[in-house]
Simulated assay, not measured.
Amino acid sequence: MREIDFTQEKLAERMGVTQGAVGHWLRAEREPKLHMINQILVEVGFGPLQIGAAVQMRENSAVYGDTVHPTAMTGADGHTHELYYCYPIVSWALIDELPVATTWPRQSSDYATQARGFWLRVEGDAMTAPVGLSVPEGMLILIDTGLAAEPGKLLIVREAPNAVAIFRQLIEEGGQRYLKPLNPTYPKTLFTEQTQVLGVVVQALMKF
Protein backbone atom coordinates (compact mmCIF):
# COMPACT_ATOMS: atom_id res chain seq x y z
CA MET A 1 0.00 0.00 0.00
CA ARG A 2 2.89 2.35 0.73
CA GLU A 3 4.52 1.59 -2.61
CA ILE A 4 1.39 2.47 -4.58
CA ASP A 5 0.36 5.36 -2.26
CA PHE A 6 -2.87 3.59 -1.32
CA THR A 7 -4.17 4.92 2.00
CA GLN A 8 -6.33 3.28 4.62
CA GLU A 9 -9.01 5.87 3.88
CA LYS A 10 -9.03 4.98 0.20
CA LEU A 11 -9.15 1.23 0.89
CA ALA A 12 -11.98 1.69 3.39
CA GLU A 13 -13.96 3.67 0.82
CA ARG A 14 -13.44 1.03 -1.88
CA MET A 15 -14.33 -1.80 0.52
CA GLY A 16 -17.40 -0.09 1.96
CA VAL A 17 -16.10 -0.35 5.55
CA THR A 18 -14.78 2.07 8.13
CA GLN A 19 -11.17 3.17 8.29
CA GLY A 20 -11.08 1.63 11.78
CA ALA A 21 -11.90 -1.80 10.32
CA VAL A 22 -9.04 -1.48 7.82
CA GLY A 23 -6.70 -0.49 10.65
CA HIS A 24 -7.69 -3.58 12.65
CA TRP A 25 -6.91 -5.79 9.63
CA LEU A 26 -3.54 -4.21 8.96
CA ARG A 27 -2.52 -4.50 12.62
CA ALA A 28 -3.66 -8.16 12.64
CA GLU A 29 -6.13 -7.42 15.42
CA ARG A 30 -9.00 -8.84 13.37
CA GLU A 31 -9.20 -11.13 10.35
CA PRO A 32 -11.40 -10.29 7.35
CA LYS A 33 -13.35 -13.08 5.70
CA LEU A 34 -11.94 -14.69 2.58
CA HIS A 35 -14.10 -12.73 0.12
CA MET A 36 -12.94 -9.49 1.79
CA ILE A 37 -9.30 -10.59 1.54
CA ASN A 38 -9.80 -11.23 -2.17
CA GLN A 39 -11.36 -7.79 -2.63
CA ILE A 40 -8.42 -6.18 -0.82
CA LEU A 41 -5.96 -7.99 -3.08
CA VAL A 42 -7.80 -6.84 -6.19
CA GLU A 43 -8.01 -3.23 -4.98
CA VAL A 44 -4.24 -3.04 -4.42
CA GLY A 45 -3.40 -4.62 -7.76
CA PHE A 46 -3.09 -8.35 -7.13
CA GLY A 47 -5.17 -11.28 -8.36
CA PRO A 48 -7.63 -13.01 -5.99
CA LEU A 49 -6.60 -16.05 -3.99
CA GLN A 50 -7.42 -19.45 -5.46
CA ILE A 51 -8.51 -22.04 -2.89
CA GLY A 52 -9.86 -25.54 -3.09
CA ALA A 53 -12.01 -27.53 -0.72
CA ALA A 54 -12.08 -31.28 -0.24
CA VAL A 55 -15.65 -32.30 -1.10
CA GLN A 56 -17.45 -35.49 -2.08
CA MET A 57 -17.06 -35.80 -5.86
CA ARG A 58 -19.10 -37.82 -8.35
CA GLU A 59 -17.96 -39.57 -11.51
CA ASN A 60 -16.45 -37.16 -14.07
CA SER A 61 -16.31 -34.36 -11.49
CA ALA A 62 -12.75 -33.55 -12.56
CA VAL A 63 -14.09 -32.72 -15.99
CA TYR A 64 -17.41 -31.10 -15.18
CA GLY A 65 -16.94 -29.71 -11.69
CA ASP A 66 -20.16 -31.44 -10.62
CA THR A 67 -20.31 -32.09 -6.91
CA VAL A 68 -22.60 -31.74 -3.93
CA HIS A 69 -21.07 -28.44 -2.83
CA PRO A 70 -21.18 -26.97 0.64
CA THR A 71 -21.85 -23.22 0.51
CA ALA A 72 -19.13 -22.49 3.05
CA MET A 73 -16.29 -24.19 4.88
CA THR A 74 -14.62 -23.80 8.25
CA GLY A 75 -10.96 -23.01 7.87
CA ALA A 76 -8.02 -23.91 10.08
CA ASP A 77 -8.53 -20.54 11.78
CA GLY A 78 -11.92 -21.71 13.03
CA HIS A 79 -13.79 -19.13 10.93
CA THR A 80 -16.40 -19.87 8.28
CA HIS A 81 -15.48 -18.75 4.77
CA GLU A 82 -17.63 -18.53 1.66
CA LEU A 83 -16.53 -20.85 -1.14
CA TYR A 84 -16.15 -20.12 -4.82
CA TYR A 85 -16.29 -22.79 -7.51
CA CYS A 86 -14.61 -23.01 -10.90
CA TYR A 87 -16.40 -24.34 -13.96
CA PRO A 88 -15.07 -24.82 -17.52
CA ILE A 89 -15.95 -22.38 -20.29
CA VAL A 90 -17.23 -24.73 -22.97
CA SER A 91 -17.69 -24.45 -26.72
CA TRP A 92 -21.30 -24.78 -27.89
CA ALA A 93 -20.23 -27.49 -30.30
CA LEU A 94 -18.74 -29.60 -27.50
CA ILE A 95 -21.42 -29.44 -24.81
CA ASP A 96 -21.77 -33.24 -24.88
CA GLU A 97 -18.09 -34.01 -25.34
CA LEU A 98 -16.21 -32.02 -22.74
CA PRO A 99 -12.47 -32.76 -22.79
CA VAL A 100 -10.21 -32.84 -19.75
CA ALA A 101 -10.84 -29.78 -17.61
CA THR A 102 -7.20 -28.69 -17.48
CA THR A 103 -7.26 -27.95 -21.22
CA TRP A 104 -10.18 -25.53 -20.91
CA PRO A 105 -10.33 -21.98 -19.50
CA ARG A 106 -12.33 -21.74 -16.30
CA GLN A 107 -14.42 -19.10 -14.59
CA SER A 108 -15.25 -18.95 -10.91
CA SER A 109 -18.69 -18.48 -9.34
CA ASP A 110 -20.21 -18.43 -5.87
CA TYR A 111 -22.99 -20.69 -7.18
CA ALA A 112 -22.79 -24.39 -6.38
CA THR A 113 -24.41 -26.42 -9.16
CA GLN A 114 -26.70 -29.36 -8.34
CA ALA A 115 -25.01 -31.53 -10.99
CA ARG A 116 -22.64 -30.84 -13.89
CA GLY A 117 -21.88 -27.15 -14.30
CA PHE A 118 -20.24 -25.25 -17.14
CA TRP A 119 -20.11 -21.80 -18.72
CA LEU A 120 -21.13 -20.89 -22.27
CA ARG A 121 -20.48 -17.64 -24.09
CA VAL A 122 -23.67 -16.27 -25.65
CA GLU A 123 -23.62 -16.20 -29.45
CA GLY A 124 -25.96 -14.14 -31.61
CA ASP A 125 -28.65 -11.65 -30.58
CA ALA A 126 -31.68 -13.92 -30.04
CA MET A 127 -31.58 -13.22 -26.29
CA THR A 128 -30.86 -9.48 -26.58
CA ALA A 129 -33.97 -7.54 -25.58
CA PRO A 130 -34.63 -3.81 -26.11
CA VAL A 131 -36.06 -3.54 -22.58
CA GLY A 132 -36.16 -5.71 -19.47
CA LEU A 133 -34.24 -8.94 -19.13
CA SER A 134 -31.51 -9.15 -21.76
CA VAL A 135 -28.56 -11.51 -22.21
CA PRO A 136 -26.47 -10.07 -25.05
CA GLU A 137 -23.84 -11.70 -27.22
CA GLY A 138 -20.51 -12.20 -25.48
CA MET A 139 -21.96 -12.63 -22.00
CA LEU A 140 -20.92 -15.74 -20.07
CA ILE A 141 -23.80 -17.84 -18.75
CA LEU A 142 -23.47 -20.56 -16.10
CA ILE A 143 -25.42 -23.76 -16.79
CA ASP A 144 -26.66 -26.14 -14.09
CA THR A 145 -27.67 -29.53 -15.51
CA GLY A 146 -29.28 -30.62 -12.24
CA LEU A 147 -32.25 -28.21 -12.21
CA ALA A 148 -35.73 -28.82 -13.60
CA ALA A 149 -37.04 -26.84 -16.57
CA GLU A 150 -39.82 -24.57 -15.29
CA PRO A 151 -41.70 -21.69 -16.92
CA GLY A 152 -39.75 -18.47 -16.63
CA LYS A 153 -36.37 -20.21 -16.55
CA LEU A 154 -33.68 -19.61 -19.16
CA LEU A 155 -32.69 -22.89 -20.78
CA ILE A 156 -30.13 -24.45 -23.07
CA VAL A 157 -32.07 -26.88 -25.25
CA ARG A 158 -32.15 -28.89 -28.45
CA GLU A 159 -35.46 -28.81 -30.26
CA ALA A 160 -34.78 -32.15 -31.96
CA PRO A 161 -32.22 -34.99 -31.65
CA ASN A 162 -28.81 -34.01 -33.04
CA ALA A 163 -29.96 -30.39 -33.52
CA VAL A 164 -27.77 -27.43 -32.55
CA ALA A 165 -28.17 -26.30 -28.96
CA ILE A 166 -29.95 -22.95 -28.47
CA PHE A 167 -30.54 -20.50 -25.62
CA ARG A 168 -34.19 -19.61 -24.89
CA GLN A 169 -36.65 -18.76 -22.13
CA LEU A 170 -39.34 -21.32 -21.27
CA ILE A 171 -42.81 -19.76 -21.04
CA GLU A 172 -46.34 -21.14 -20.71
CA GLU A 173 -49.38 -19.73 -22.52
CA GLY A 174 -52.83 -21.31 -22.63
CA GLY A 175 -51.55 -24.56 -21.16
CA GLN A 176 -48.85 -24.91 -23.85
CA ARG A 177 -45.13 -24.38 -23.28
CA TYR A 178 -42.98 -22.41 -25.68
CA LEU A 179 -39.32 -21.53 -26.15
CA LYS A 180 -39.18 -17.75 -26.35
CA PRO A 181 -36.27 -15.58 -27.53
CA LEU A 182 -35.92 -12.35 -25.54
CA ASN A 183 -35.40 -10.56 -28.85
CA PRO A 184 -38.94 -9.91 -30.18
CA THR A 185 -37.78 -10.11 -33.80
CA TYR A 186 -37.22 -13.87 -33.39
CA PRO A 187 -40.20 -16.29 -33.35
CA LYS A 188 -41.07 -18.47 -30.38
CA THR A 189 -41.30 -22.23 -30.91
CA LEU A 190 -43.15 -25.08 -29.24
CA PHE A 191 -41.57 -26.92 -26.33
CA THR A 192 -42.41 -30.55 -27.14
CA GLU A 193 -41.66 -34.03 -25.87
CA GLN A 194 -38.77 -34.14 -28.33
CA THR A 195 -37.16 -31.02 -26.84
CA GLN A 196 -34.02 -31.99 -24.95
CA VAL A 197 -33.14 -29.77 -21.99
CA LEU A 198 -29.37 -29.56 -21.59
CA GLY A 199 -29.41 -27.30 -18.55
CA VAL A 200 -30.80 -24.25 -16.79
CA VAL A 201 -29.02 -20.89 -16.83
CA VAL A 202 -28.38 -19.75 -13.26
CA GLN A 203 -25.94 -16.86 -13.63
CA ALA A 204 -24.72 -14.40 -16.25
CA LEU A 205 -21.42 -12.53 -16.32
CA MET A 206 -20.23 -9.79 -18.65
CA LYS A 207 -16.46 -9.61 -19.14
CA PHE A 208 -14.79 -6.59 -20.72
Rank of each mutant, 00 (worst) to 15 (best):
L140H: 07
E137I: 01
A53H: 03
A62G: 14
F208G: 13
R158K: 11
Q203E: 15
A62P: 00
I156L: 11
R116H: 13
E59C: 00
I89Y: 03
V131N: 06
D144P: 00
Q194G: 00
M1S: 14
T195G: 05
D125M: 01
G132Y: 10
D77L: 02
P88A: 05
T145I: 01
E123Y: 07
Q8G: 11
D66V: 00
F191M: 12
Y178L: 14
A72K: 13
E150C: 11
V135A: 04
Y178D: 10
T7G: 05
T80I: 12
V44R: 10
K33V: 11
D66S: 10
F208R: 12
P181N: 09
E137P: 02
Y64K: 00
A54E: 15
V131I: 05
L190I: 07
A12Y: 05
R27C: 02
L179A: 06
V122N: 08
E31P: 00
I166S: 15
L34H: 08
Y186V: 05
G117D: 05
L147V: 04
E173I: 13
P130M: 01
M127L: 02
A165S: 09
S61M: 04
A204W: 07
L94I: 10
R168T: 07
I156S: 10
G175F: 12
D77Q: 04
V68F: 06
Y85W: 13
E43D: 15
L11S: 07
V42Y: 01
W25K: 10
A76P: 09
P99Y: 09
S61C: 11
E97T: 15
T145G: 02
T80A: 09
T67Q: 04
L83Q: 03
L190Q: 14
